[in-house]
Nucleic acid binder design. Structure first.
Ligand SMILES: [Mn+2]
Ligand SMILES: [Mn+2]
Ligand SMILES: [Zn+2]
Ligand SMILES: [Zn+2]
Lengths: 127, 127
DNA sequence: TAATTAACGCAACAAAGTCGCATTAGCTAT
DNA sequence: ATAGCTAATGCGACTTTGTTGCGTTAATTA
């Protein structure tokens, strides 16, 4: 259960680092030119999430997106209570920095926050 | 493009009314005892959403949930900027009443809000 | 350098949702 | 009431997204 460094892992990580947006599996697969097997990519991403290297966003298109979080690299325990914006035109999914707090009804315990707003980003709005 | 009333439509609607939670396709299918075809249920739900009768939630389990909204019956234009809570134990998905407002970065236009918090609901927390 | 086992590739599988098409049955206007 | 129009249905095939089993490869450690 000790993690190993492999070329695949390094490749996926560097794609995530270069993009400063969240990436879906197919975006990664494309960026990797199909050199890495589908299942492998999925497994790498799941491991990244387990290890707290990335966080997973389930967007309103039903797909999972994976994002490196600044804080993830630094703070051990931190929340991911921020929204994500998915542009319906350029398909970019990005983290919105402001952390939000939701107060749940009495007796409810939150385990996971998943907030996505879709629309048109500033880049695409101009055009 | 004028809608018709059919037994299937009525059945789906009444299940949604009886439940005061959001329901996924498979929950509905079960509640309907498999009397209505899968594709038909999907189509009915999509029509309900188009017509503003229900709103669609994409939860962090990747599934779509459909909820009648109080306001949907009354107000013509209203927002669905509220969170939903998905209990990891009883699997209920419910609307949290407080409307939330998110301020997006300059130039961003929101089209859809999709907020889901998963965890344990008060019912299940006690047990 | 050898042993251990995490990670890989491949294939099969599962779940969620959509779509084409022939048939059925609401609605409307006669 | 009846006929015509076409929305809605059922069935099947299909797509997309993601997972899992298994035999093989290769990263780590001793
Ligand atoms: Mn983070
Ligand atoms: Mn509503
Ligand atoms: Zn954009
Ligand atoms: Zn519960």
């Amino acid at each position: 259960m000790k993690r190993r460094n492999t070329p695949s892992k390094t490749a996926v990580l560097s794609v995530l680092e270069r993009a400063n947006t969240a990436l879906s599996h197919d975006m990664l697969e494309e960026a990797l030119d199909g050199t890495i097997d589908r299942a492998t990519i999925y497994r790498i991403l799941n491991r990244f999430c387990e290890d707290g290297l990335t966080h997973r966003i389930v967007a309103d298109d039903g797909k999972q997106y994976f994002a490196l979080c600044e804080e993830c690299n630094h703070q051990k325990a931190h929340s991911h209570n921020h929204f994500h914006f998915r542009c319906l035109q350029c398909e970019r999914v990005e983290c919105l920095s402001n952390e939000v707090s939701v107060n749940l009804p009495k007796g409810y315990r939150a385990e996971n926050f998943n907030g996505v707003i879709s629309g048109v980003c500033n880049r695409c709005a101009v055009a």
